[in-house]
Structures are given as structure tokens and as C-alpha cells.
């Protein structure tokens, strides 16, 4: 059994909603993440999927210790990261790095690629002595498949896919153990997306990285992930291995999500049964009582409004699902029928 590198326990992150200019009054909370627990094992990729507003990016921010959790803990090798400060915090930051979604706005346009990728060494000078930094940057450029000669170029001279490689090189500079990827390929074209995904896989194999891979594209997540967690409105509704989630989903939301993924094969048009969800995601300021998905769920009963379903293994299933009526459903077509 491999060790857990990150353990998340009952994590809650609420943002206050205020009214008034001078006398600010809190009138409610956006419950962005509301009781999430999971483990990340060394060397694995955990995919986190969910639609906009489900809290997956907030989760990334808390994992990075960019936000303090409202309640709960994020443990890195048993240490609660929100309790760290000073030198201990700085040492921790070396170990967990972030790759951001938008390669156009996440790179400072006035810095050269060499400065951008070398900047982490300024903050953590113990990693590389000043004299060796330029060579380190060149090595990193080579590692992510960019030409080391381009070290003096500016971000605008690169295409979207190349910029994302710069973002990845920067995240790798300090040799972290964990990389949190927040929608790393969603801004890229299909042919370029595949190049970046291959790069991420190659780096994981070479450097033994663990990834938390956050995305809304279910086929991208499946391709890269060992385990997948599905989020809805601040909660995890289902967690399992890639196979368990994609082949045997038991939560109605996961089923609906999978059935709605367009399949790139016109011959499955007829055999495909899309589960149509009604309406929109409710506001995270006042989520529905009980199960948060019940307002859009076709299985909802009275119990769903009263009891919050726990994320646990239910009879007839092999992985945790947060639904009172979790069951397998066969008709979900997730890929071409060979």
C-alpha cells in the first residue's frame, strides 16, 4: 500500500456575502466547498470533475494554501498545512505547485521565459545556486519540449500550447511532489491538448509526481486519472477508480454527466440515451436541504430533502457514492461500441 501524500478531512470553505459599504454586514455565505474528504496517494493522479460553480477551483486554492479553510484540514504527510507559517510554510510550498488554466493571463508579459521559469529560484534560493540557474531553466525548457534557445523570448512569442508548457516548467522548477492542475488543457485546441496531456503523463512517469487534475472535460480526466472524484455544489458525490466511475457509476448526477458527454462517433447517435437534467445548478449561497442534487434528480424522494446522504459504500456497489438510492445503470454509453 502506497502512502497518502495528501489527506483532506472534512474540508469546508465558505466565502461571506456582505452588504453595505461602510458598515459591512454579512448576509450569507457562499458554500463553495462544504465538507470534502479524500486522499491523494504518492504517484497517482486524482481527477476532480464537476461543472462550473461546483467548488473544484476553490478546492485547488485551499490545497495550495492560497486560502485558509473555514473548517477541516489539509494534511501534507500528516502536517496540517493551514497551521504552518514562516520557513515551514515556505518549505511546504516547494512541494505543492500549481498549473493554471489560462496560459494567456497567468504569465507576466513583461518577463522573459528565463525570468518566469527562474523566478521560483529567487524565492527558494536553496534549491539552485545563482550561477547554475540559467542552466537549470534550460534543462526545464528541454524537459517540457521547448527549445532551450528561446530562453530570452517573451510569452507573446509563444502559442497557447507552448505557453502552457512554460507554465508546467515553472511548476516543475522546485521539483515538487504534488502538482495541482486546474483545467490545464481546457483553453487549448484538440491537437495541442493531446500534446500537453502526453507531456503531463511523461513527466509523471519520469519524476514520480502526484497530480490533482481538475477539469470539466470527462474524457480528458479519464485519460489521465487513476481515481476520479465527482463534485456537485461543494460536495463530493461519488469517488472511485477511473473504471468504477466511468463504467459503473451509481450516483444519478455522475450518470447524467456521463450520458451528456458528446461521443465522437456518429454511429452511436441512436443507441445513446442522454439523461436530461432539468434546470440549472442551485445557488451555493442557499443550497437545497438534504441531498443537494435532489432539485434536479429524477429519483428524489422525501428522504432526500431531509437527510444528507453520506459518501459511503452502498449495497450493490463497490465504491463510495453519496446517494440514498445509488444503483448501477446500464444504458450509459460513454464510448464507442467497438
Amino acid at each position: 500500500m502506497t502512502e497518502n501524500i495528501i489527506e483532506v478531512r472534512d474540508l469546508v470553505k465558505h466565502y461571506p456575502v456582505t452588504q453595505g459599504v461602510v458598515f459591512k454586514k454579512t448576509i450569507g455565505h457562499v458554500k463553495a466547498v462544504d465538507g470534502v474528504s479524500f486522499d491523494l496517494k504518492a504517484g497517482e493522479t486524482l481527477g476532480v470533475v464537476g461543472e462550473s460553480g461546483c467548488g473544484k477551483s476553490t478546492l485547488a486554492r485551499v490545497l495550495m494554501n492560497l486560502e485558509k479553510p473555514t473548517a477541516g484540514q489539509v494534511l501534507y504527510k500528516g502536517q496540517d498545512i493551514s497551521k504552518l507559517s514562516g520557513g515551514a510554510l515556505r518549505r511546504l510550498r516547494r512541494q505543492i505547485q500549481l498549473v493554471m488554466q489560462d496560459p494567456y493571463t497567468s504569465l507576466n508579459p513583461r518577463m522573459t521565459v528565463g525570468d518566469l521559469i527562474g523566478e521560483p529560484f529567487e524565492i527558494h534560493p536553496e534549491v539552485a545556486p545563482r550561477a547554475s540557474r540559467r542552466n537549470k531553466v534550460k534543462e526545464l525548457l528541454d524537459l517540457v519540449g521547448l527549445n532551450p534557445e528561446h530562453i530570452n523570448r517573451y510569452p507573446h512569442q509563444f502559442s497557447g500550447g507552448q505557453r502552457q508548457r512554460i507554465g508546467i516548467a515553472r511548476a516543475l522548477a522546485l521539483r515538487p511532489e504534488v502538482i495541482v492542475c486546474d483545467e490545464p488543457v481546457s483553453a487549448l485546441d484538440v491537437s495541442i491538448q493531446a500534446q500537453v496531456m502526453n507531456l503531463l503523463e511523461k513527466l509523471q512517469a519520469e519524476l514520480g509526481l502526484s497530480y490533482v487534475f481538475i477539469a470539466h472535460d470527462l474524457s480528458v480526466v479519464r485519460h489521465l486519472s487513476d481515481r476520479v472524484a465527482v463534485m456537485y455544489l461543494g460536495k463530493m458525490v461519488e469517488v472511485g477508480t477511473e473504471d468504477e466511475i466511468y463504467e459503473r457509476p451509481t450516483h444519478p448526477y455522475t450518470q447524467a454527466l456521463l450520458s451528456a458527454v458528446p461521443v465522437p462517433d456518429p454511429t452511436v447517435r441512436e443507441s445513446k440515451a442522454i439523461i436530461r437534467l432539468q434546470g440549472d445548478v442551485p445557488s451555493p449561497v442557499s443550497p437545497p436541504s438534504g441531498c443537494r442534487f435532489r432539485t434536479r434528480c429524477w429519483k428524489a424522494q422525501d428522504v432526500c430533502a431531509q437527510e444528507v446522504p453520506l459518501l459511503e459504500i452502498r449495497p450493490g456497489s463497490d465504491h463510495p457514492s453519496a446517494c440514498h438510492f445509488a444503483e448501477k445503470r446500464e444504458i450509459v454509453v460513454t464510448h464507442e461500441v467497438a
Partner: peptide, 10 residues
């Protein structure tokens, strides 16, 4: 090339 670069679920 485009068709080949889609991550297939299978």
C-alpha cells in the same frame, strides 16, 4: 490527426 488526438474513453 484530429480524430486520433481525441482522448477516447476506451
Amino acid at each position: 490527426g484530429l480524430l486520433n488526438s481525441i482522448p477516447r474513453m476506451d
